Amino acid sequence: MVGDTTLNLAVLIDADNAMPATARLLLAEVAKYGTAHVKRAYGDWTSTNLKGWKEELLRQAIQPMQQFAYTHGKNATDSAMIIDAMDLLYLRHFDGFCLVSSDSDFTRLAGRIRESGLVVYGFGEHKSPKPFVAACDKFIYTENLVLSRIPRGLFLLHTTIETASDDEGWAALSHIGDLLTRKHPDFDSRNYGYSKLGDLISALPLFDVIRHSPREGKPKDIYVRDKRRGGGGNAAN
């Protein structure tokens, strides 16, 4: 059934573990495998952490599913998404599910859906746990979706960051800017809607970004790394 574009699919998105910038590309990829008859995104929409999702929810006709956190440190969103998935599974209206997350909590869900004879497509970042990847019929890394569609200028940015990086994959933003100026003098972050290079890089779901102050009271230096070289999202020190 994998790759059958006549499939009726349910797309369930763990908004806590997915980037809104990839929503359009993700749904375009889903369309290669079937028709998304259900598109739901789960999260606490009162949280400022998810504010970037609002426009994409409207633009892509994704239904937001509200789930308040019951207690600090526990992910109620995962539970709500799993319960909904089982309800939809029992309806028998679907041929498969698209589970969008980089969280290991959905490993058993993927297995249970497959046990019922339905196909499971997983979507997540390269940090996604291997058991979750293996539990899906097919797993698509969202960074690859972005890389395959970015214009030449952003591809040059990506390769420059790789060139400037150290053994652990980190590159100083100042070094990246210098290399871009010398090798690609026509590159301008304003062409992509950002006045500063750092803002452009931070907006792309391709990179980890950290800010580190060498000494107390000094301005923080910015370092960038390809997400595929590391273990996860943005952090600030």
Rank of each mutant, 00 (worst) to 15 (best):
Y223L: 12
I83N: 01
R228S: 14
L180A: 02
V100P: 10
F68I: 01
L154I: 10
W45R: 10
K127G: 09
K54F: 13
I82S: 09
T142F: 08
I222V: 15
A15V: 01
L147R: 15
C98Q: 10
Q60I: 03
V30D: 05
W45F: 15
T48K: 15
D208Y: 02
N75R: 04
R228E: 08
I201D: 08
A171L: 03
N8H: 12
G34C: 02
L206V: 02
L147S: 09
V38H: 09
L206N: 05
T48D: 15
L204R: 10
K32M: 13
Q66L: 01
L58Y: 09
I83S: 01
G124A: 00
L25R: 13
E56M: 14
S213T: 09
L157V: 08
G34I: 06
H175Y: 08
H93N: 15
P64K: 00
L206F: 07
V146I: 11
V11M: 04
A15T: 00
R229P: 02
I113C: 02
V146E: 05
L206C: 05
Y192L: 06
A134H: 12
I82D: 08
A28I: 12
H72L: 09
N17W: 04
Y42K: 02
F187Y: 02
H72D: 12
L173P: 05
K138C: 10
D44H: 05
L12H: 00
A164P: 14
Y121R: 00
R229N: 11
A10K: 01
C136F: 05
A171H: 03
L154W: 08
Y70R: 06
Y194M: 10
D16K: 09
I82M: 13
L57E: 01
S116Y: 06
G153A: 10
L57D: 00
N75S: 10
R190Y: 04
R92S: 14
Y42A: 02
C98S: 13
F139R: 12
F94V: 08
L89P: 04
E29C: 14
G52F: 06
G34K: 07
N237C: 03
G231E: 14
H175D: 11
L99V: 12
S116L: 00
G43H: 08
I62K: 07
Y42I: 01
A80C: 11
A21L: 07
H72F: 09
Q66A: 06
S101V: 09
D186Y: 12
H212P: 00
L147G: 04
Y192W: 09
I140Y: 10
G122K: 01
R225E: 03
F94P: 06
M86C: 14
E143Y: 10
